[in-house]
Each structure stands twice: as C-alpha cells, then as structure tokens.
C-alpha cells in the first residue's frame, strides 16, 4: 500500500487541533471544490484534501492513521500485523485479501467511525447484513471530436471502480462500458447511465455513472451550443464583385453564393448545418474576413495602384462626419 501524508495534504502539522484541521479543510475546499473552482486539477486536489479530512476529522481514524507511522508520500508500506488480522477477522474467510491491492483511503473508509463519503459502514469494517447501502455514483469526463459529436459515436470507457464485498472490504475492479452517444451532443452536456456506477450492498440501489461531454477544439469550426462558426476569408475582389465559394461543413462541402458588396464581419448563415438535435438543429455561420495577400507581384501592385487612382471611395468617410457632429455638440 502506498503511504499518503494527510497532514501535508491539508497543510497542517501533526499537532494541529481538530478546529485547525477543520479550518484548513474549509479553506482548501473553497479553493478546490470542483463545483466552484476554476483551478487546474481542482478535482484531483479536492479529492486529496477531502480524503485527508475524512480521516483526520474523525478522532478514531486519526489515531489509527497516526499509528501507521511516518513514511515518504508514495512510499510502499504495510500496516501493522494486527491490522491485517482485524481486516481478516469475522465473517467469510478473507480469501485473496491483501493490503497490497488497497488504497489508503479504502482502508480508512472500512474503519468504524464517522460516516464516510457515502455514510458507510458500521461494525469494524463489516457492513451489517440487514442494512441496504446504495452504490456510489461516479462522474467521468469523456472527450470526443466534433465529428464524433456530429455523427454520434460509441464511447468506450475503461474505469476502475471500488467495490465492496459483504464484509465491507474494498477492491478496485476494472470495468469497461460501451455507451452509445447519439448524434448532436455538444460541449458541457451530461449523460447518465443508470445503475452503472458502484454496486450496492445488501440489495440497495446501484449507483449511476454520469458522463460529462467535452469537445476537442476543431481546426476550422468553433462551437457555441449547437451552432458552429467558421472564418470565411475572401479576397477583396471576391467581396466586391461577388462569387461562389465552397464551404466545408461536417456533412460535406456545400457551395455558397457570395453577393456583390459583401462586408467583412458579416455572418452568412447556413441553416441546419450545425450539430443536429430534433427540432433544434444548430446552424453554421461563415464569418466573412477580407484577406490580404502577404506579398504581391509587380503586376498586381500595378493594378492595385491603378485601382487606388481610379476609385473615389473613402472607407473612413464617417470619421469626418462623426468628428464634425461631435464638435458641433460641444
């Protein structure tokens, strides 16, 4: 089993009072709680902090933890021999039980004392046979590409769930889920796989598995809800004279007519070319940009010069008008 320094996780020393431990937890929880925090690795940090607090807030668990001795974080260690005996005692024969497979948190979750995260487990590490204990819910984030979101996809999730046996002992069990994600899912959406979380004990309700969908950034399209945005660069003459251009969409290329006099920044809407959802299909917006070549040939330069001489158009005419009216009001 790997050692974890619960005091270091909370930033307190071993002599800290229960009050100071609570204060330290609250401060860190406010900083890292995944529901309110924008810190990087908030979820992992909060898990560390709450795991430490679960043990240190409970005098009995704290005493047991102190009894383990001190090791380097991550260092392999074995709990004292009488602990193994305690975990092996009573009930069914603990065939195959070993501390090596356990996580430190699971060890303390199985100890008598204050309620754990799921209000578990009276009776010296053993669940009472007549008490129904619901399975734990789990939440995972699944990252998928925009193309997968558009077409729908089969998501394969390889997860490790802690599972308790009837004696209240825990083992990490690998589980693989295949979940069909229908077309049209978008960033931040949640899905629920009912009953696919932790197993219940003594006939309680199995936990659920929640999936948070995260979309990978796309090289061309930006996503907002089910709408997609695409930059559409046009050459000056294309915007002035009008043209017809090919636009990539998630369902293939389409041809779009550009009207003469199209302005930079205009949003050209391609209805229902965004992410699908019955009755609420997203649209694709092509945002016009006037692109300027980085370098021009002598011939092009000559033509631009001719154009600048021939044209009387002043793109900044409104500067004058606006400045005059401003001056006029003062």
């Amino acid at each position: 089993m790997k050692y974890k320094d619960y005091y270091a996780a909370l930033g307190v020393d071993k002599t800290a009072s229960a009050d100071n431990i609570k204060k330290a937890y609250r401060k860190l929880a406010r900083k890292y709680h995944p529901d309110v925090s924008k810190e990087k690795n908030a979820k992992e940090k909060f898990q560390e902090v709450s795991e430490a607090y679960e043990t240190l807030k409970d005098p009995e668990k704290k005493a047991a933890y102190d009894q383990l001795g001190t090791y380097q974080p991550g260092q392999d260690f074995r709990p004292p021999p009488d602990w193994e005996q305690h975990f092996n005692s009573g009930g069914a024969n603990a065939g195959g039980f070993s501390f090596d497979e356990m996580d430190l948190a699971d060890l303390f979750a199985g100890l008598r004392g204050g309620a754990g995260t799921r209000g578990f487990r009276g009776g010296g590490g053993r669940a009472r046979r007549d008490v129904q204990i619901p399975g734990e819910d789990f939440e995972v984030t699944a990252t998928i590409s925009l193309e997968q979101a558009f077409q729908g996809t089969m998501l394969e999730l390889n997860l490790q769930f802690p599972e308790y046996d009837n004696e209240g002992r825990v083992k990490r069990v690998p589980r693989v889920f295949k979940a069909r994600i229908p077309p049209g899912v978008t960033d931040g959406e949640r899905l629920r796989l009912a009953g696919k979380g932790g197993k219940a004990i003594n006939g309680g309700r199995d936990g659920d598995l929640y999936i948070n969908i995260k979309l990978l950034p796309h090289r061309l399209f930006r996503v907002s809800g089910r709408d997609l945005y695409l930059d559409l660069p046009l050459a000056v003459w294309e915007a002035v004279l009008g043209t017809s251009v090919e636009i990539p969409t998630l369902s293939g290329t389409v041809r779009l007519k550009i009207r003469p006099g199209t302005q930079a920044g205009q949003h050209l809407r391609l209805a229902k070319r965004g992410l699908p959802k019955p009755g609420q299909e997203g649209d694709l917006y092509a945002i016009v940009q006037i692109a300027v070549p980085a370098s021009v040939s002598d011939k092009e330069k000559e033509l631009y010069t001719q154009l600048s001489t021939a044209s009387t158009w002043n793109p900044r005419a409104h500067f004058d008008t606006e400045t005059r009216s401003e001056t006029g009001t003062h």
């Binding site: 589980r175 889920f177 295949k178 979940a179 069909r180 229908p182 696919k196 309700r205």
Partner: peptide, 26 residues
C-alpha cells in the same frame, strides 16, 4: 473483464424526472 453495453440518457429538457427520482439521484 465484463463489457457492459448501455444506452446513455440525456440530462436535458428531453428527460423528465419526478421528485422521488430527483431525490434518489441527488
């Protein structure tokens, strides 16, 4: 290792839950 195939349910306005179910899930 057991492979479990399952249909995902959206948590959006398409689904409806009762008060009892909401209590159970939360």
């Amino acid at each position: 290792m057991k492979l479990e195939l399952t249909e995902a349910v959206w948590l959006d306005e398409r689904g409806i839950v009762t008060l009892v179910e909401l209590a159970e899930c939360s």
